[in-house]
Structures are given as C-alpha cells and as structure tokens.
Design a protein around this nucleic acid. Structure first.
Lengths: 116, 116
DNA sequence: CGGGATCCGTCTTGATACTG
DNA sequence: CAGTATCAAGACGGATCCCG
C-alpha cells in the first residue's frame, strides 16, 4: 500500500502500515468485534470492497500483524486472526476511539466492544 | 479527502480526519517540531508536494484542528498552529510513536521531540 | 521570496462482474 | 465463500506558473 518513506520516524513508519482509509477498520473489526472471516469484514457499515479487503489482509499478513489459517482441513474457509504484534495495536485503537468519542459528535461506543 | 462514512463508529469517523498518508505527518511536524509555515512542512524528509500540503492544511483548518493566521500585518507569511482540538491529538501521536519505536526496527526518536 | 494554484502523467483505489 | 479480473475514477508527484 504505502511506499517506504526513507525516514526513520516512528510516526511515518507506523503510518506505512496503518495510515490509510481501511487498515485500522479491519483491525478494529478483529479486535473489538472478533471478526475473523472475509465475509464478516465485508458486512461492516463502511462497505469495504472485496479487492481492497483482500489487499489489506494480505499486507497485514506480510507485516506480521495478522495470520491466516484454513478454518478446517476440508474447507476453503479462511480464518484471519491478530498476531501478538497485531494485538499490540490495541492501545492505538483505544486512544483513537476515545478521541473520536470526545471530539466528534454523532459518534458512539460500538455495540459489542470487547476492548479491555 | 475522505468521504463521510455513514457510520457512528468513533474509529471510522476519526479516520475520516486523519486516516490518510499525510495528515498526521503535518500534525507531527507542528506538535513535535514546532513547525508553523508552509515551507517548513515541505522540508520534512517524506517530501510532501505543494498541492497536497495546501489541501491538507485547508482540510485541517476546516476540521478545526488548525488555525491559519497572517504572520504579521504587512506580510503574506502565514502561520499554521494547532488549535486546542488539534493539540488534543497529542495522545494519539504519542501512542503511535511508542508503537513504532517498539515494533519497527530502524525507527528512532525524533531529533527535537517536544512531546510532553 | 513565500504561499499557494494549475496542469498533466502516473499510480492507487474502488465498484462491479466474474471465477473456483 | 473467498477471493481475482477489469476498468473507471480519483489521488498523488512534480513542474510550472502566478500573485502580492
């Protein structure tokens, strides 16, 4: 998605991974709503399209934030789960959530927040 | 830049404001490096181009995160400063910085960090 | 000289249709 | 169900121009 920035800035490099319109929403769906399957991500109200979702899941896997596994031996169902590194983004999601709730009217806490 | 999402999710709505490749870098430059002028933002190593920078500054102003003022009465120099609302993003920048420093090799703390 | 606006070629994104 | 192919629309990078 994002080219490397030729800069050692931690903000810049982190944004190479999650600084786009969709990536953090996929992570939100995994982290707060426990979503794990392709179709579940498609159901979110923001309406990500299939090619973008496939692309972001692949980039997240390449970045080591998500691991992809077959649901079972005899199924093509795939399972996407956060790795430990992916889970480590929870404070980032949390502070973004809190900022939005405080400063943006018309936002509200998600229906099934599983945040710690 | 980002269309509204028709979703009350605070993550989603916050990303409408800062969920792109450049916006948080401009805010970083203001917040950590004290930059205030157009030309100073252009000097950052990521190399934002003039049209993109002008666009992001305008969007930030419209969002109430930045205020633009003439440097003095008899100069066209402009001054971009974070509003209180913009300053309130400091915890977001901070947690992103910390995540990058911890999880991304080859990142290092900025030269003149003014973060609290 | 500082702060943009405009134009243009390229790259990325995204909606939709389609496939195994 | 989980993607891939296609193709149009938009975002971006860079140069140039403009205006006070």
């Amino acid at each position: 998605m994002n080219q490397p920035r030729r800069s050692p800035c931690p903000v810049s490099c982190t944004l190479d991974l999650i600084g786009d319109r969709w990536t953090l929403l996929v992570i939100r769906d995994m982290m707060f709503f426990g979503k794990q399957r392709f179709e579940e991500f498609l159901e979110s109200p923001e309406g990500i399209s299939t090619n973008i979702l496939a692309n972001r899941l692949r980039l997240l896997e390449e970045a080591g934030l998500v691991k992809k596994q077959p649901y079972s031996n005899h199924s093509r169902r795939m399972n996407y789960q956060l790795t430990e590194k992916g889970e480590s983004l929870r404070p980032v999601l949390k502070v973004i959530t809190l900022w939005g709730l405080k400063h943006l009217p018309d936002t509200q806490t998600p229906d099934r927040p599983q945040s710690s």
